[in-house]
Simulated scan of single mutants.
Amino acid sequence: MTSGNTNKTQADHLRSDAEQRLEFQHQYTLAGLKTLQLINGGAILALLTYAGNGGTADVSNFKVAFALYAAGLVLVTLAYLAAYASQGAYMSDSGIRAIEYDGMKAVSEKSADEYEAIGNNSVKASVGLVLASLASFIGGSYAAFLGIF
């Protein structure tokens, strides 16, 4: 085997590794978003169950907790939408670049760089929304704790 073939084989291996790691990242991201939906929604159900079974609690704290858990659900849903928008922008970016690499002119309202910037901004928005959702869950849990004890 020549040095050129070895380099190509190594490059192919590294590309395959990168693709697999991207898929893992995708799976972990989805799991994280689903977990935030689950814990915020589950917390709302737990509050309603506690109140429905005649648990003694400070109602004002429970209202705050309920509102924060509901806000957490809305925020994680918006994070899903921002993540979806990022992938649409990155797809457009890649499509335009592929057409241009083939020597043709892409017909698009925006350039590949503009789509890439939209994708980057959407990812940043999604991460911020996820962190805000997590903060809502923590705040709601604290308010629920104060309401019970």
Rank of each mutant, 00 (worst) to 15 (best):
N7M: 12
L22H: 08
N40Q: 09
N5D: 10
T56R: 13
K8A: 15
S122R: 11
G147Y: 05
T49D: 15
Y101P: 00
F149H: 15
S16A: 12
Y115C: 11
Y84Q: 12
A71H: 01
L134N: 03
E116R: 15
F145G: 10
L68Q: 14
L68W: 02
A11M: 07
A112F: 06
T9N: 09
L33R: 14
T29R: 15
T77D: 14
S108G: 10
N121P: 01
D102Q: 10
M1D: 15
F62M: 15
G139H: 01
T35G: 06
K124R: 05
Y101H: 00
A79P: 00
K34A: 11
Q20H: 15
M1A: 15
Y142C: 06
Y50I: 04
V59N: 12
V130H: 01
N7L: 14
S86N: 07
S94C: 12
Q10I: 14
T9V: 09
Q25V: 06
D17G: 05
K110T: 10
L131H: 07
A18N: 13
G42P: 09
A85Y: 06
L75E: 10
A57T: 02
A51L: 12
K124S: 01
A132P: 04
V64L: 09
I44N: 03
N7F: 07
F137T: 06
G42K: 06
A82D: 04
M1I: 15
S16V: 06
E114L: 12
V127M: 02
A144Y: 02
A98E: 14
V123G: 00
